[in-house]
Write a protein that binds this DNA or RNA. Structure first.
Lengths: 203, 203
DNA sequence: AACCAGTGTTGACGTTGTCAACATGAGGCC
DNA sequence: GGCCTCATGTTGACAACGTCAACACTGGTT
């Protein structure tokens, strides 16, 4: 089974399908994604995608996997070089990057966390991507503990709490639950990040 | 073809449809809910529900509305009588009640917050229910501020942070994202609630 | 007895995900 | 070159879905 590095009929249909799926999800939501329309937009027949994905779930899983890769990169970049000393600012950058990613790639984010993919654990690539993203958070917390900025608790436990807060904030934001006239979304983000930092610092 | 005549008029089809929808969602997820199967299970034709709901969205909106009513009641009961002095314990009970609700009624919770209902704001009953549930939280925080247990910040702002953390925790739990061998779900709940209390208390 | 609004049914249509059968093209083998 | 083989793409078909239109029955009001 060699990989055809060169184009077949379509250049790289697999990747094109994932990208087109993202566009459609952005336009019409995950529920609005239809395989037939996806094929049609790529000038390809409705069942062409079955040569690359087992079914619709598999296409969504590919979207999620790609999402986690982008996500991990965004978080890791925000945290920056391991050589630079850990600081409150670096942690805030990660928090911002998390929320930013969700707001700038809501389609990815929803597919990644929206339970549209049946068994996340079953797909090894997917589970790995997710773990690596979570790992960035754990690493950051450990580094911050190393310089005494974060209280000494089990890092995974702390990380789950941080993750829960950030994830919840992101979900509320992209579901429009915080877009009410009496609430300033941006203020909600910074104040929630402040609260998270509060509970991380030693008393 | 002939059905028992007395069953022609179903007792309370509207309510029965909502309940049946919940059962199906519990079994097969929100995506697995189908109007035809719902009717069939109630021994009613596939389109009978159009006499009670405009479309599938409206049925889901009814599920969400009922969910918010139950949710508000659960939170309000956990907080208890306004006459009793506010305390850390009362707040923890609300936090527990929040997570418990999500875990015991994941179908309700997912429909309520999963963005399956298009325009939550458009349905006045729905928006009202959601606001009342949020109101319980704000009230609790104000009472806790009154007795000096919670720092003096704008209550809605604090409430959003608390809500984000609890919501995120609940979502991760019911999506099975925290059910990994190295994580104890119950420990995650209590430690996250501890963290929330941390950032609420005055420094 | 006649009516009528509320409720449930049947038939039909267009759309969806998916399978089976068929077609086509690229690259290796002689 | 001629051929073979497999990966890739297409067409046809099917059951299931949400929903509309037309029809049928029920129970209460006049």
């Amino acid at each position: 089974m060699r990989k055809p590095k060169h184009a077949y009929h379509h250049g790289d249909l697999r990747q094109a399908l994932v990208q087109q799926a993202l566009v459609t999800i952005q336009e019409q939501g995950v529920e609005g994604l239809t395989l037939r329309q996806t094929g049609e937009r790529l000038r390809v027949s409705r069942t062409a995608l079955y040569r690359h994905f087992a079914d619709k779930q598999a296409l969504l899983a590919a979207v999620a996997t790609e999402g986690f890769a982008l996500f991990e990169r965004a978080l890791a970049e925000a945290w920056g070089d391991a050589a630079v000393p850990a600081s409150r600012e670096r942690f805030y950058r990660v928090g911002r990057a998390y929320v930013d990613f969700a707001q700038r790639h809501p389609s990815h984010y929803r597919v990644m966390f929206g339970r549209f993919v049946d068994n996340v654990a079953a797909d090894p690539g997917l589970a790995g991507s997710a773990d690596r993203a979570f790992g960035v958070l754990v690493t950051a917390l450990e580094a911050l503990q190393g310089v005494g900025l974060v209280r000494r608790h089990a890092p995974p436990e702390l990380a789950v709490s941080v993750w829960a807060c950030t994830h919840g904030l992101a979900m509320l934001l992209i579901d429009g639950q915080l877009s009410r006239p009496d609430l300033d979304a941006e203020a909600m983000v910074s104040s929630t990040l402040d609260r998270v930092w509060d509970f991380l610092t030693p008393r």
